[in-house]
Computed example of a mutant assay.
Amino acid sequence: MPAFILYGSRGSTNTDRVRLTLAEGNFTDYEIVLLNLQKAEQKSEEHKRRHAWGKVPVLTSADGFTLYESRAICKYLAKKYSFPLLPADSDVEALALFDQAHSVETLTFAIPAGRIAFEKFAKRFMGLPPDDAEVSDALRSVEVFFDVAEGLLQRKAYIAGDDFTLVDIYYVPLIQRLFACGYEDVIVSRKAVSAWWDRCVNRPAIQRVLAADR
């Protein structure tokens, strides 16, 4: 029996965030159950017993523990299975910088990048046209974000400091989605951001996941 089941979906950046974390931890003792979002399988009564808002991903362990929200799942896994993706508990300053970087990613990057992904990627599969005004507004926010990140990444190798952490993983799925939507220039036009991205995306574990999805 696997240690846990991960309920997710193909093409879900939130699901991919967890998959990348598991790959970096070289952890394979789990089962993934894919739900079809286009058929609204995530809104079934069965799934809502796992996630009251009917979303993915959700982790359910063999002993009955259930957890949702991708970043919470990633941090739980890293702590439970000792993945080398978090600062040491004894390093209070590094932990504070990690939490700071985590908040910035969630509130300042993921929201506008997610809006672009929905308008330019998800709506394509829904047979709906994108809202170009919404895309333009979100893109401006993403560009401002990476203007600031460019300066910060000139002084450190990774988002939260000199070590690769979960926060770097959190960026990967939505940046991949920006590339898929034709906005790769947001990354490659900024030297320090582009170098950071190359360091992240060329990690062997991340390459394995991306290759499996091609």
Rank of each mutant, 00 (worst) to 15 (best):
D63I: 08
F164T: 08
A101T: 05
K156R: 15
E134M: 11
D89K: 07
P130R: 00
V209H: 04
A40D: 15
D147F: 03
A160F: 07
S61R: 13
Y171I: 07
S9D: 10
K120E: 08
K55W: 07
P204M: 03
A122P: 09
D16N: 01
V33Y: 00
N36Y: 10
K191P: 09
R155Q: 13
D89H: 10
A138P: 02
T108I: 14
F83K: 06
E69C: 08
G161K: 01
A117K: 00
K191I: 15
R190A: 08
Y81Q: 02
F98V: 02
L35T: 10
S136G: 11
A211T: 15
S44N: 07
C74F: 12
V209S: 03
L97W: 11
K43P: 15
Y81I: 03
A52E: 03
Y170M: 12
R17C: 10
N14H: 06
P87T: 01
F146I: 13
P57Y: 03
K55Q: 15
D185S: 14
G114Q: 07
N36T: 03
L95G: 01
E46F: 00
L59D: 08
L166Y: 00
R49T: 14
A40Y: 08
A94L: 11
V186I: 15
S141M: 14
N14S: 14
G64F: 09
R199M: 04
F164K: 05
D162A: 15
S141E: 07
L139C: 01
Y158A: 01
S90A: 12
D63R: 10
G161H: 00
M126P: 12
Q154F: 01
A23W: 08
A72M: 11
L178D: 00
K48I: 13
K39W: 02
F27K: 02
Y7D: 10
P57N: 01
L6P: 12
N36P: 09
A78N: 10
E119M: 07
F179A: 06
A40K: 14
L59V: 10
E41N: 12
L107Y: 06
T66N: 13
R71K: 07
V201D: 02
D162Y: 01
V142H: 02
I32G: 10
T60D: 11
D198N: 04
K191D: 13
Y7R: 12
S189P: 11
D163Q: 06
A96T: 05
W197K: 05
L85T: 14
E45C: 05
W196Q: 00
A88H: 09
L174E: 03
F27R: 03
F118P: 03
V18F: 04
S189E: 08
R124Y: 08
V18Y: 03
D168R: 01
L86C: 01
P129T: 00
E184F: 06
S61G: 13
R49Q: 14
L77F: 04
R50L: 15
R49S: 13
G11L: 06
E41A: 14
E105K: 03
L35K: 02
A117I: 10
Y158V: 11
S70K: 07
A52G: 11
D63W: 02
A96M: 11
A205Q: 04
V104L: 15
D162C: 08
E24G: 04
K80H: 09
G64Q: 00
R208E: 14
K79R: 14
C181K: 00
A117H: 08
Q100M: 14
A212I: 06
R50G: 13
F109W: 04
D168L: 11
D91A: 07
A3I: 07
K75I: 13
F118A: 07
D16I: 04
Q38M: 09
L152H: 08
I111R: 00
